[in-house]
Amino acid sequence: MNVLLDSLLELIRRTSAEIPDDVHRAILTSLENEKKGTIAESAFKIIERNIGLAKNKSQPICQDTGSILFYVDCPVGFDQIAFTETCREAVTLATRKGYLRQNSVDSITGVNDGTNVGPGSPTVHFHQHRASTLQVRLMLKGGGCENVGAQYSLPAEKLKANRDLDGCRKVILDAVLQAQGKGCGPGVLGICIGGDRAVGYEFSKLQFLRLLDDRNPDERLDALEQDILTTANELGIGPMGFGGKTTLLGVKIGVANRLPASFFVSVSYMCWAFRRQGVELDSALGISRWLY
């Protein structure tokens, strides 16, 4: 019996089938706020019913079980190679059990071998820390919302966006406009201001590990997050782009230094079917607590 394998399998099952509480609360609030008798309200009702069904049946919330992204905070000296091997094993097993769709395709041949394991899948990000605790977070990010992510290079003349926070605001709101309908709204934005192209997108996704109702400790970024959330919800895009009051459930912004020559704003979009969970593992690698 492999305790770590069982723990990771349970993490995958629960991530795929259960919406985290913080996201569920936000969806319930949006349902209450939506105008009664509209197709937007109907959409929210189906979403809410789906969340309950998936949990009760222990089945995927969404059939696109997405890119499989592990984020691991581990002590110094932790065997990352062995851990990654077990992640791959857990993913194969979870796919066989139907927690994950056969979702990984060879980009050259188009062949889907049905295991979900291959170059870049799953992806395991390690972060060493001085503490002795081991925490594993998992994000399953579907293709619909991944496709509407966008990276802007400032200045962006068409949008009159200069190299300042107002320019960032303009391109981020443009991303919301462009994403309408396609990314299964209401969604959540994870944003990185700065970085190179790769770091920008990586940091933007890390923002999804934050709790939806937390506040940014940086006052300037906090103000921008609140402003974008409010403004986006005034655009009338609504759930699934049907028109309505809730276009976004949250906005999370991180920042990285940039080169003098570059100014990227990277926007990742997460759909309402926001699948992320996390566990802390004990010394025997069993689950000692859930993080969300």
Binding site: A43, I47, N50, P60, I61, Q63, M240, C271
Partner: peptide, 13 residues
Amino acid sequence: LHAIGGAAQVLAE
């Protein structure tokens, strides 16, 4: 005909 994205369980039923 627009179905609700992400509602995989409601629609599977």
